[in-house]
Structure formats: structure tokens, C-alpha cells
Simulated scan of single mutants.
Amino acid sequence: MPRLESPIHPDASPELKRLVNAMRETKAANPEKLSYKDLAARAHFSTASLSLAASGKRMPTWEVTWAYVSSCDLDAKENDWRQLWEAARDAEEARSAASADSDATEPNASRRPNTRRRVSVADLVREEVARQQQLVPFRTSDVDATRTALALCTTADDFRQLLNELKGSLKSDELKERARSKGRILRKSDIHAMLDGDGIPDTEPLHAFLVACEVAQGQIHEWHHTATRLKISQARVYDPPEEEPPLSRAMQSLRRLRGELNIHNLVALATLIVTIMQIVTIVQYGKP
């Protein structure tokens, strides 16, 4: 089932929003209910490029726009869509030029901090891959994007975000059933720990999750390699415990000793004490 579209970017011009809305409506009207993966196979552009083109975050190229539309609607009229696209392009260029003039005349414009924030490693890679895909079609694939995103992972949070991207709209029950059909055990608790936990997932649940998401065998190895790398990185970050006071260490030793003693040890200890006392008495008095 196709994923629900995210809201159109609020910074898009009215003309760009009109273009994006028309693109989305054309895709939704397709009787086959195409996912972006299906659309990518038809349009010969990556899913990232097509998704970005229909997001309103930036002005898509004509090639991507027409590939998107014509793959959804075989009867689409190129001239009509070209006019709609050109109107959006002109509006975006005019707004960009006005913004540049405003920045140039504003005092201390060069000192203003950059407030743009990258949400995640996955977002950063997706935007760059989409940009490269629009420049040179067929050069960058989704596999390359995933490989790059895994290479850029530095924290467990980065890794979880990529796992959530991989899961998409699949439900936990669907993942469990997919894993079971492939001879793997995947519990809901495993899925929850991987997507919402704190650490790096264990090898077996991670493997079952990747299999359920239909990740290719070659890519599964790269996921495991990244998980291992992050685990090693976390293990190296180690803060030695603070030195405990001598009295505290002594009390802990006594508690451990008390825990280790049992009735047999006590009897043996009492027997040893009695034997020592008898030996001392013999040595002192010459008799028991």
C-alpha cells in the first residue's frame, strides 16, 4: 500500500503548491495505486527524486516532473503540464531573486547564523541523492543512498532513524508474518526495541527485521557491519568508576562473604576453631 503523502512544504510558492497538488492528484488517481517504488520503476528516476519533486521543498526539474506525471497518467498532455511547471518555475525564480536582493541590502547579512537544521542523516543523504539524480539520471540508486546513509551513521539514534525509514508503513504484525514465512522469529518486543529503544539491536532480531523488510542479502551485510561498528564505538566510550572509600569496600566484602557462607561452611569453620583451641590447650598444658 502506498505511503501517505507528507504535507506540502509551507515555504513553497502558491504556483509550486499548485503544481505539486496536481502531481499528487494524478498519482492518487492512478487505478493501480502506485507506490513510489513502483513509480520509480516506470519513470526511471529514484524514489528519492520523485518523492522530493512532489514535496514542495524545492522546484523540480522538468524531466523529473514529466516522468512523474506521464508514468501516472499515460494520457497526460505535455503542453498543459509544461505551462503549469513553467509558472511554478517563474514564481520560484522571482522569489529567490527578491530574497537575494533583500539579503544583499540587509546590514550584517553575512553575520546572520544559519538556522537551517538537518533532521537526520537519512534526510541529508536523501536530499543529496535527489539533487544528484536530477542532475544526472540513473547515476545514483536507492542502494547507493542506503549505503551512504549507513556509512554516515555515528549514533544509535541515526541507526534507528534508518530502520524506521526502512520499515515505512509496514505494521508490526506484517513484519512478524514476513519474518516467519522466511524461517525467522521476530517478536513485537524486538521491533519496538529496534525502532524506539536506546541501544543498537542484537544480531538475530536485526537480521529477522531486515529479512522481513526484504533487504537484499548484500545490503544485509552492510547493516550488520554498521551495527557492529556502532557497538564497538560505544564500548570504547568508557568512564572508569569513582574510587570507593575503604570502609565502603570493606562493607561490600563482608556482604559478599556473608552471601557466600552457608550452613556447611559454618560447621566447617566452627570445627576448625575448636580444633585450633584444642591444639593451643595441648601446647600450653600438655594435655587436652
Rank of each mutant, 00 (worst) to 15 (best):
A156S: 15
A76E: 07
A151N: 11
L39W: 09
R112T: 01
A212M: 05
T154S: 12
N114F: 02
E242R: 13
Q132I: 02
K77G: 06
A40I: 03
Q278S: 09
D198Y: 12
L230Q: 12
V211R: 13
A29P: 06
A29E: 12
M194L: 09
R229N: 08
K57N: 08
K27C: 04
S51N: 13
T228L: 12
S99P: 00
S51W: 10
A109Y: 05
L272N: 15
G199V: 00
D157I: 00
N262S: 06
L230W: 11
S71L: 04
E32F: 10
I185D: 11
R42F: 02
E5F: 15
R180M: 01
I200K: 13
E165T: 02
E222V: 02
P10Y: 06
A41R: 14
A235F: 07
T228P: 00
A250I: 01
Y238D: 08
T154R: 15
T226F: 08
F209R: 07
R3D: 11
K37T: 10
R236H: 12
L266Q: 08
Y68L: 07
T65P: 11
P245Q: 02
T140A: 09
S110G: 07
R82I: 00
R178S: 12
A149T: 04
S248G: 02
C153I: 00
M23A: 05
